[in-house]
Simulated scan of single mutants.
Amino acid sequence: MEWREYAEQMARLARELLAQDSMQGTLDEIAASAVKLVEGCDAAGILAVSKGRAVTLAACGDVVRESDRLQGELGEGPCFDLARRKGGERVYRIADMTQPQSAWERFAAAARGLGVGSMTGVLLYTHEEDFGALNLYAQRPGTFSKDIETAGWLLASHAAVALASARTIDQLEHAMESRHAIGEAMGILMERHHLSEDDAFNVLRRISQHHNIKMRDVAQRVRNGRTSPA
């Protein structure tokens, strides 16, 4: 591997990831970039574990979703364990999936049936939070060497920073959309029922609290004409 060339690719990747306009776009670009940039990688995906359930956040290649599904059903597998931080590991590498795997016997057998010859994965994390595990698949055994493990680690580091940025942007946009929806709903109530600004806001808040739903959802119902302040 030519590390200078890879460093240049990482710099381009950082710009491409930060240019994505949504969290999902960033996740999809990370998986696609892993296939493009990591030598021998045939498929890649991002797996998270929520309440013990495997969730595929992004997939580039058909084998990814099936592998994630199997690991979730079996409750075992390298991606599954990494995503839930079992044992505190942040990286794994299986050089040859055709050889017996004592840690994940059932998954290894199923993975061989899917045509998986080699796997490696890296936890996507920042100091503040984890985003799941970036997992790379190859059909040929022996594909992922120690050097390629390092390459995956560098890619994952860029990806985690981009995901943290994308989540912040998504949260800001969501907050702005919520404020806009609430403002419109308040305007409708003020005009329709001759309320003051404070009274209109309190109406939305009381409905939200009484029905235990988010104020943004109450505002949307007012905008759609489905909710009355009565």
Rank of each mutant, 00 (worst) to 15 (best):
E2I: 14
E2F: 13
E2Y: 11
W3N: 02
R4M: 11
E5H: 13
Y6T: 10
E8I: 08
E8H: 03
Q9F: 06
A11H: 10
R12N: 11
R12H: 11
L13D: 08
A14C: 15
E16I: 03
L17H: 03
Q20H: 04
Q20K: 07
Q20I: 03
M23Q: 12
M23N: 07
G25F: 13
G25I: 02
G25E: 09
L27S: 03
L27Y: 15
A31L: 07
A31S: 14
A32P: 00
A32H: 08
A32T: 05
L37E: 03
V38C: 10
E39F: 03
E39N: 10
C41F: 02
A43W: 01
A44H: 02
I46D: 07
V49H: 06
S50H: 13
A54N: 05
T56H: 12
A58E: 02
A58V: 02
A59D: 05
V63G: 04
E66C: 05
S67H: 08
S67K: 07
S67D: 09
D68T: 05
L70F: 07
Q71H: 07
Q71A: 09
G72K: 12
G72S: 09
G75I: 05
E76H: 03
P78N: 11
C79I: 02
F80K: 02
F80N: 15
R85I: 14
K86G: 06
G87Y: 10
G88E: 09
E89W: 14
V91W: 13
R93T: 01
I94E: 01
A95S: 13
A95E: 06
D96V: 00
T98L: 15
Q99N: 04
P100V: 01
Q101I: 06
E105I: 06
E105D: 12
F107A: 05
A108E: 01
A110V: 06
R112Y: 06
R112M: 14
G113P: 08
G115I: 05
S118Y: 03
S118H: 02
M119N: 00
T120M: 14
V122F: 06
L123T: 00
L124E: 09
T126F: 09
E128S: 09
E129F: 11
F131W: 12
A138Y: 01
A138F: 03
Q139K: 15
R140D: 09
K146N: 13
D147G: 14
I148F: 10
A151K: 10
A151Y: 11
W153H: 10
L155R: 04
A156S: 11
S157H: 07
H158W: 10
A164I: 08
A164T: 04
S165K: 12
A166K: 01
R167Q: 15
T168E: 15
T168Y: 08
H174Q: 14
A175Q: 10
G183C: 13
E184P: 00
M186L: 08
I188P: 06
L189M: 12
H193N: 04
L195T: 00
L195I: 11
L195Y: 07
L195A: 10
S196K: 10
E197V: 01
D198E: 15
F201R: 15
N202L: 14
N202D: 13
R205H: 09
R205Q: 12
R206W: 12
I207K: 12
S208C: 08
N212T: 07
K214M: 07
M215K: 08
D217H: 09
V218T: 06
T227K: 05
P229R: 12
